[in-house]
Design a protein around this nucleic acid. Sequence first.
RNA 1: GGCUGGGUAGCUCAGUUGGUGAGAGCGCACGACUCAUAAUCGUGAGGUCGCGGGUUCGAAUCCCGCUCCAGCUACCA
Length: 526
Amino acid sequence: MSSGRSFYVTTPIFYVNDAPHIGHAYTEVAADMLARWHRQSGDDTWSLTGTDEHGEKILRTATANGTTPQEWADKLVRDSWIPLLETIDISNDDFIRTTDERHEKNVQVFLQKLYDDGFIYSGEYSGLYCVGCEEFKPESDVVDGVGEFAGQKVCAIHSKPLERLEEKNYFFRMSDFSQQLLDLYEQNPEFVQPESARNEVIQFVRQGLNDLSISRSSFDWGIKVPWDDSHVVYVWFDALLNYITAVGYGQDNENFERRWPGMHLVGKDILRFHAVIWPAMLMAAGVKVPHRVFGHGWLLVGGEKMSKSKLTGIAPHEITDTFGSDAFRYYFMSAIHFGQDGSFSWEDLSARYQAELANGFGNLASRALAMVTRYYDGVVPAPGEYTEADLNIQRVVAEAVANADAAIEKIALHDSLAAIWTIVEELNGYITIQEPWALAKDDAQRERLSTVLYTVTEGLRALAVVLSPTIPKATTKLWTALGVEDSLGALTAQPIRSAGVWGQLIPGTTVGALEALFPRIESTDA
RNA sequence: GGCUGGGUAGCUCAGUUGGUGAGAGCGCACGACUCAUAAUCGUGAGGUCGCGGGUUCGAAUCCCGCUCCAGCUACCA
């Protein structure tokens, strides 16, 4: 069953202080759909997610909550982030925390190597410091003062003047890698995707890179710099390394060779860290860069980026409580062009659920199995001679599977589902035209009826297999109802790339009852 | 300010290198059918392709200007 191909996909790790919203869930689902698809294709698949737990912010909230940062992080991981994965039915193979020993220890290994090889030096970090925030402010949080502070730079939060302070930091010689990065983007056009993201990254690097301050000494919640324990590692530098420490960097070379390099799925807001800083770090350390970095778009609510401050943040469970995890997964993967920003609205979600999942796919399964039960006592009949209409269905199924797989290779998740959905549409149309209920009234048409119902049921079998990575719960129910567990094996063991090969369903199989896969949801004000 | 992406039917969006009367899904109207989750199938109505110029035999598609929306402008993750 193994294809011999290695497929390693990662999501960004969650900053534990955030509240889970559908943006986090969106990335997770996309990575999971890819992982399930590859896993079911026989590829040597590994999917990773996890949490980012260091940094001053976490130290502060922990202190404010009267606890230690470790306990605070433990609580958030347990109460927020692990449950999120369950809410949206993620099948990750591993979950790394930046407080794991395997991570902390090997971040130090990595850093020490860069230090020994001369890529790190001690310098002065000069920045604008806000006394109110007790921290250095990035330029994005700095605004021009007004009124009595006109002409000065002030903190966006406190509106008070910032002080220019200097602090001893360790710096990474990132500026040395500008050209190597540009060469990478040039020689490997797929390294950063989609195209629009690639252009922005190239444009940015062309302006020249500054060295990166990678340590902090004003607080101590982080990984100690190995040669100077008065400093902790800058959180991003720490966090990015999770992608390799999770698969054995520094301690399990065999596993590391097996998994790395992988591909990263990230939101476009953190693309720069992944497409610039991260490969530069790896180049310095002599480690291969990732296969690719895919920056997806944002979910827009009311035309704007979803945000907590504007009260447009939506918790995943708000959707799954009503529609279920399958609908959540299907909706975001099919309705939004992966890579571009996409609009979310309850109306759209509700409409698509009804039209596509309930009326389209769910009802198809329902009417098909009902007829097998009604006309053949639940035993799938053997097909007779195929007509052009039947052969057309076979072609549609084969093409849909091939097209869906090709789309997955391009990380065009929406295209993949669109290809698969042609099967649903063809099958519904086929049933209407063939009118099995009319055939059933005429004994002379018994063989024709058998052929029609076999065709529909076999089509459903293929649908269950290729939809399994997207809507695992519903397809599992369908698989059980099809009664093929004994003859064909578990759903997730069905090789997905050959799902379109006709005739896998064995006549004589007894189908069972099928509850509504996607029951109608009584419309509310949603 | 600079940079990027975008403004196409009521809604969400497709529209390769310019060329048969501008498309899809949903929604809507009408019709067919009854196996099915009051589901399905078919037909139809609906658009000054943001605005103004220009290039061209011909532009939603190229060039110039304008306007509107969103985002980015590095060490908060």
